[in-house]
Simulated assay, not measured.
Amino acid sequence: MSTPALRPFLPADAPILAAIFVASIEALTGDDYSEAQQEAWAAAAEDEAAFGQRLASQLTLVATLDGSPVGFASLKGKDHVDLLYVHPGAVGQGVAAALSEALEKLAAARGAKSLTVDASDNAAEFFAKRGYEAKQRNTVSLNGEWLANTTMQKPLEAPAGGAR
């Protein structure tokens, strides 16, 4: 099994990352969200240019397996995970863990004392296993549908001085 490689987001990635976003929502969230909720959520990627601008405005990493993008994650500001999505075909191959670990290190390097994420119900267990603690439940309106998520927070260790 290949190890995920990480690289910075490029504007040309927007179409494939939009497709990963939609595929992830459609295939992985059905136990927690209705079809109408999934459609409202996935609609955020319908305008690929706007989706690409959102990714470009944040620190966005792309995970690849054998050179092909299979997931992505973005850091909004210095301390908030805005997006973390993995293609359903790449789930269980360490992609989300690699992305999450990289964002945690980058946030710590930027001086963040903790990292927050508004985790969907299907992602909350993943974040809990990584040391994130649930802080509050939220209800957000997306394209006329109400979706629940949980704000979770993880304390970060200050980066070690010098090379490792």
Score class of each variant (00 low, 15 high):
Met1Glu: 12
Met1Thr: 08
Ser2Arg: 12
Thr3Gly: 08
Pro4Glu: 07
Pro4Ile: 11
Pro4Ser: 03
Ala5His: 14
Ala5Pro: 00
Pro8Cys: 10
Phe9Pro: 01
Leu10Gln: 06
Pro11Ala: 03
Asp13Ile: 06
Ala14Pro: 09
Leu17Val: 07
Ala19Phe: 01
Phe21Met: 07
Val22Arg: 15
Ile25Ala: 06
Glu26Phe: 04
Ala27Asp: 15
Thr29Ala: 14
Asp31Arg: 15
Tyr33Gly: 02
Tyr33His: 03
Gln38Ala: 07
Glu39Trp: 04
Trp41Leu: 11
Trp41Cys: 09
Trp41Ile: 11
Trp41Tyr: 10
Ala42Asn: 15
Ala44Lys: 08
Glu46Ser: 13
Asp47His: 05
Glu48Lys: 10
Glu48Ser: 04
Ala50Asn: 08
Ala50Tyr: 10
Phe51Asp: 10
Phe51Val: 08
Gln53Glu: 14
Arg54Ser: 04
Arg54Pro: 00
Leu55Lys: 02
Ser57Ala: 15
Thr60Asp: 08
Thr64Cys: 15
Thr64Ala: 12
Leu65Pro: 05
Leu65Asp: 07
Asp66Gly: 04
Gly67Met: 04
Gly71Leu: 13
Gly71Thr: 09
Phe72Arg: 00
Phe72Thr: 02
Ala73Leu: 05
Leu75Thr: 09
Leu75Gly: 01
Gly77His: 12
Gly77Asn: 09
Gly77Gln: 05
Lys78Ala: 11
Lys78Tyr: 02
Val81Asn: 09
Val81Gln: 04
Asp82Thr: 07
Leu83Trp: 05
Leu83Tyr: 12
Leu83Glu: 07
Leu84Cys: 13
Val86Leu: 03
His87Ile: 03
His87Cys: 04
His87Asn: 04
Pro88Ala: 05
Gly89Trp: 02
Gly89Lys: 01
Gly89Ala: 12
Ala90Gln: 01
Gln93Ser: 11
Val95Gln: 12
Ala96Asn: 09
Ala98Asp: 12
Ser100Met: 15
Leu103Asp: 08
Glu104Cys: 14
Glu104Val: 01
Glu104Gln: 15
Ala107Thr: 04
Ala109Ser: 14
Arg110Thr: 01
Arg110Gln: 15
Gly111Gln: 13
Ala112Arg: 02
Ala112Glu: 10
Ala112Met: 06
Ala112Asn: 08
Lys113Asn: 13
Ser114Val: 09
Ser114Glu: 15
Ser114Gln: 13
Thr116Trp: 02
Asp118Gly: 12
Asp118Cys: 11
Ser120Cys: 06
Asn122His: 11
Asn122Thr: 13
Ala124Leu: 06
Glu125Asn: 03
Phe126Glu: 05
Phe126Met: 08
Phe127Asp: 03
Phe127Pro: 03
Phe127Val: 09
Phe127Thr: 07
Arg130His: 14
Arg130Met: 09
Gly131Val: 06
Glu133Met: 06
Ala134Trp: 04
Lys135Asp: 01
Gln136Ile: 05
Arg137Val: 02
Asn138Cys: 04
Asn138Ala: 00
Thr139Tyr: 01
Val140Gln: 09
Val140Thr: 10
Val140His: 10
Ser141Pro: 00
Leu142Val: 15
Gly144Ala: 05
Trp146Pro: 00
Trp146Asp: 14
Ala148Met: 01
Thr150Ser: 06
Thr150Met: 14
Thr150Asn: 11
Thr150Ala: 08
Gln153Ala: 07
Lys154Arg: 14
Leu156Arg: 03
Glu157Leu: 13
Gly162Cys: 05
